[in-house]
Design a protein around this nucleic acid. Structure first.
Lengths: 326, 326
DNA sequence: CTGTTAGCGCGTTCAG
DNA sequence: CTGAACGCGCTAACAG
C-alpha cells in the first residue's frame, strides 16, 4: 500500500519510507502493471485513433494533433489503420473495446451509423473525425467539404473554365460526396451543366487519380480543369496529365483538396482547398477528453472547420481564353 | 466458468449451455475484458513496434510486414513513433512495459545498448530492426548497408565518377555510418581520395537533404555525383539540384538508399539501393514470435538481408566524359 | 459436462 | 503515517 502511495504521489508517506521504496524500485527494476491498475480503476488512460490511411500525410498530421493533446493530458494513443475497409475497422473496434480504451477517435470507413453506435452502446464515447455519419448521434469534427469545394470550383469558373471535371473518392464516404455536392452547387449557380461524364468516383488513391484523369483526357471536348477530391487523387491525376504531355496550367488546370507536403516534388505546386488537419485532430481530442471528464454533458456537437483556398501556379484560365484573360 | 469455456473454445460445454451463453452475450453486448484476461494469463498477445519516423514509406512498409505476420498469428501491434528522439523512445518503452506487451520490435533512435538492455532485463524479448546496436546482445534484422553502399558507389566509379559526395544521416545511427563506410571502401579500392568535405552527416530528412546538396553544389570543383543515404535525403537533394538548374543525370548523378514510392513524382526516377522493407518487418516479427513461443532458444541471431541495386535514369557518366562513355 | 476456489497486481476503504 | 481486507474480471486447477 505504501508502495502504491509512493507511485501515485497520493496520501501521506514518510520521507524514510519513500526513500526505501524508491531504492527497492530501482534495485528490482520494478515497472508498475497498467493492466492491474486499469482493472481496478476502470480507466486505461488510453485513446484509440482509428483512421483510414496511415500513408496519407493528411491523416498523419491529424494523428500528430491527437497525440500532442493526448500526451499533454497524460493519455496514450493507439493508432489503427483500416485501409478504408469496414471489416478491418470492425475487427479493430472489437479489439479496442476488449482493451478497454477510454474513448475512440474514428475516421469511419463508411458513412454508416452502425459501428459508431456499437461502440457507444458499450459505454465508450466516440468522436468522429473528418467525415459525417448521417444517422448517428455523435460528436463530429470535420472540414467544410461542401463549401471548400464550392469555393474552389467557383474560382475555376471565374477564371473562365466551363468544362470542369471532378475526380472524387468512394461514394459511400461523406467527404467524397460533399465535395461533389459543392462542385454541383458552383456549377449550377453559374448555369453550367453538370455533365455526369465529368463526375467520377473511385478510391482515394494515387492509382485511381491516375485512372480517372486518363479517362478525362480522352474525352472530347476535353475538360479544361480537373478538381481532385483529395491529395492522393491529385498526385495521380497530375502524373497522368504530365504523362500525356499536357502542360499545367497552360493546357490544363489542376486543383485539389488537402495539402500536398513539399516532399512530393510537384512543380508547379497545386492550387488547393487546405484543411486544418492538425487542428482537426487537436479539437477532436479536446472534445473527447471533455466528454471523458464529464465536463461536456450537453448534446452532441458538430464542429465544422473552415477551409482555406490557397492559389498557386497549377491554376490558370482555360486555353481558349488564355490570351484574353492574362 | 462455463462462459469462459465458451469464449475460449476450451474444455467441454454442452450444446445447450453454449447456446444460452451466446444468446446472453448478444443480448447484453458483452465484450470480454482483455485486461483481466492478461492479468491472469500474464500474456497480452500484443507486440510493440517502435520506429523512428512514421511518415517515411520505408518504415510504413516495414510496419505492414510486422502487422501482417502478427495478425495472422493472433497478435495485435501497438505502433509508436519516436521521431529519432531518444527521450521519446524512452518514454514509449516505459509505457509499453507498463502495458505488458509480450515483445518489442525496435528501430533504435541511437545505436546505444542501454534501452535494449533495459527492456530485456525486465523479461521482454526485443528484436532490433534496420539498425545495429553494437554492444547489445539482441536479435537483429537489417539490410546490408555497408555492402549496398559499396555496390552503389562502385557503380558510380565505373561510370567514371571521381568526385562523389555522400549525404548521410545522424552519426549515431548505424545505417548512416555503415553507408558512409561502404562509400569509403569503394572509394579507397579505386584509389580515390575520400575528401572529408564530400562526406556530410545530418538528419534523415528532406530538409537536411536539401541543405547538404546545396553545400555540395557550391563546392568547386563540384562533385559529379550525389549519394543520398536515405529516401528523404534524396528527395531534398533532388530538389536542391533542380532548383539550382543543374540537370539530372547530364550534369549531376543522384543515387539513393531506400525506394521512393511512385507517388513522389520524381522524374527521372532515381537509381537506388533498395532494401526489402516488407520482408524486414516480416522476418523480425517471425523471429520475435519464435522467441515468445520458446522455439528459438539458441544464441542471438543477426539476419542481414541483401540489398538490390536498381539502375534507373538518374545516374550517368560525369559531364566531362559524357561524350566518350555513351 | 459444470461449478468452486483461488489469485493475477493494483487501489479504495477503513482501522490502526 | 501505515497496513489489512476486499474486489476489479478472468482463468488454472480441482472437485463434483
Amino acid at each position: 500500500m505504501t508502495v502504491s502511495r509512493v507511485l501515485n504521489n497520493s496520501g501521506y508517506v514518510s520521507m524514510d519510507a519513500r526513500r526505501r521504496v524508491e531504492a527497492a524500485i530501482a534495485e528490482l527494476g520494478y515497472v508498475p502493471n497498467t493492466l492491474a491498475r486499469s482493472l481496478r480503476s476502470k480507466r486505461t488512460r488510453t485513446l484509440a485513433l482509428v483512421l483510414s490511411d496511415i500513408t496519407n500525410p493528411f491523416f498523419t498530421t491529424v494523428a500528430r494533433g491527437v497525440e500532442d493533446v493526448a500526451n499533454e493530458r497524460g493519455f496514450n494513443v493507439i493508432l489503427c489503420n483500416t485501409d478504408e475497409s469496414e471489416e478491418k475497422q470492425c475487427r479493430y473496434l472489437i479489439t479496442l473495446l476488449q482493451k478497454r480504451v477510454d474513448g475512440v477517435l474514428l475516421v469511419p470507413a463508411r458513412s454508416t451509423p452502425g459501428p459508431v453506435a456499437w461502440v457507444q452502446d458499450r459505454g465508450v464515447p466516440v468522436v468522429v473525425i473528418d467525415r459525417r455519419v448521417p444517422a448517428a448521434s455523435v460528436d463530429v469534427v470535420r472540414g467544410d467539404s461542401e463549401r471548400g469545394a464550392y469555393s474552389l470550383v467557383k474560382l475555376l469558373i471565374e477564371l473562365g473554365h466551363k468544362r470542369i471535371a471532378v475526380l472524387s473518392g468512394p461514394e459511400g464516404v461523406s467527404t467524397a460526396a460533399d465535395r461533389v455536392a459543392g462542385y454541383r452547387r458552383a456549377m449550377a449557380e453559374a448555369g453550367l451543366c453538370c455533365d455526369g461524364t465529368l463526375i467520377r468516383h473511385d478510391a482515394f488513391s494515387q492509382a485511381s487519380g491516375y485512372r480517372m484523369a486518363q479517362q478525362m483526357l480522352q474525352l472530347s471536348p476535353r475538360p479544361t480543369a480537373l478538381f481532385a477530391a483529395n491529395n492522393f487523387i491529385a498526385i495521380g491525376a497530375y502524373k497522368a496529365v504530365q504523362d500525356a504531355a499536357v502542360r499545367i496550367p497552360d493546357d490544363m488546370t489542376v486543383v485539389t483538396f488537402d495539402e500536398i507536403p513539399v516532399s512530393f516534388v510537384l512543380d508547379p505546386f497545386l492550387t488547393v482547398a487546405a484543411q486544418p488537419a492538425y487542428d482537426m485532430g487537436k479539437q477532436a481530442t479536446e472534445l473527447l477528453l471533455e466528454r471523458l471528464s464529464g465536463e461536456a454533458t450537453d448534446g452532441y456537437r458538430e464542429i465544422v472547420l473552415p477551409i482555406e483556398i490557397i492559389v498557386r501556379r497549377s491554376s490558370g484560365p482555360p486555353p481558349e481564353t488564355a490570351g484574353l484573360a492574362r
